[in-house]
């Protein structure tokens, strides 16, 4: 589903002394099927933006369009439940939202509420388990007896069981160890590709943005600060430093290399192995 923000502002507690503008006249477009990373500091407006995506809040000004659904301040949202079945949000630390007696019941809770048939839910669970890397034996266990990483997978399975078309991920790897982080991100990327999802990733990790996303949006103090291809936006050290962000580590190194040796190696999402070969050629070449 295409997502469009047109001149969107959001003000908390408008017309009160506590009024706070969280989003300030933001416009952007996310094409159906793309993988977008939204980056910004705490307080940049990321979470507020995310809450618009399934109608948890309505814009104070402007309009949000998600597929055929329109959100604006003056209109009551029609078919909000339908919208929420199409946009799945994995919130931060989603394992805190587990509550059922068994893993199976917890995963089934979402689709049951959207009126999905029992037999259909069963077949979805069978399909989702391997995708999130949980063994079948776990279905009968209490989600509270699992490890943190497993609990997070159960919570994610619950979101996927609704079969959303848009998947919104709010810092999905926070608190996991490096292997867990990589496994979860690879899993989302795989789902994104196999199911043709539109994926919106809210993250602090420049490394993940440059690795997985095909479009990035940088927020600063409620404004859209930059937007574009990850390899371009995330190479602009000056602009990013201005808002206290930094370029991904490989780009940091390429810039330091250029400064020291006066030789530029462009960043093209190359592997470290490829980079080593490029450096070898340059250094050997410079000598002859």
């Amino acid at each position: 589903m295409d997502i469009t923000f047109k001149d969107v502002s959001y003000i908390y507690q408008e017309n009160s002394p506590f009024a706070h503008k969280a989003l300030d006249n933001i416009s952007f477009h996310i094409t159906s099927g793309s993988f977008v990373a939204i980056i910004g500091h705490t307080g940049s407006g990321k979470s507020t933006l995310l809450q618009h995506l399934n109608g948890l809040v309505k814009p104070t000004k402007g309009e949000v369009t998600i597929g055929d659904y329109h959100l604006s301040n003056d209109k009551k949202i029609r078919n909000i439940k339908e919208l929420r079945s199409k946009v799945g949000i994995v919130f931060q630390y989603p394992e805190h939202q587990l509550f059922e007696e068994t893993v199976e019941k917890d995963i089934a809770f979402g689709p049951e509420n959207f009126g999905v048939e029992k037999s259909e839910i069963q077949s979805r669970i069978q399909e989702i388990l391997p995708a999130v890397g949980l063994p079948k034996e776990m279905l009968e266990r209490s989600p509270f007896d699992l490890s943190g990483g497993q609990m997070r997978r159960v919570a994610i399975a619950g979101v996927l069981a609704v079969k959303p078309k848009v998947l919104v991920l709010d810092e999905p790897t926070a608190g996991l160890d490096p292997r867990g982080q990589k496994e979860i991100m690879d899993m989302f990327y795989d789902l994104h590709q196999k199911q043709g999802l539109t994926t919106v990733l809210v993250t602090h990790s420049m490394e993940d943005a440059v690795k997985y996303a095909d479009h990035v949006i940088i927020l600063n103090k409620g404004n859209k600060y930059m937007e574009g291809k990850p390899e371009e936006v995330l190479s602009d050290q000056k602009a990013l430093n201005k808002v206290n962000l930094d370029v991904p580590e490989m780009i940091q190194f390429l810039l330091a290399f250029e400064k020291r040796f006066g030789m530029k190696i462009p960043y093209e999402r190359q592997s470290v192995q490829k980079l080593a070969v490029q450096m070898q050629h340059l250094l050997k070449g410079a000598e002859s």
Binding site: D177, P178, R179, G180, E249, M250, F253, V272, Q273, L275, A276, V277, M279, Q280, L283
Partner: peptide
């Protein structure tokens, strides 16, 4: 054992592989 290695350490290894 599920841990990560810094980028420079990985690059250093690849440079050695590439003959530096």
């Amino acid at each position: 054992i599920g841990l990560d290695v810094p980028f420079v350490a990985i690059l250093a290894d690849e440079l050695v592989q590439a003959g530096i």
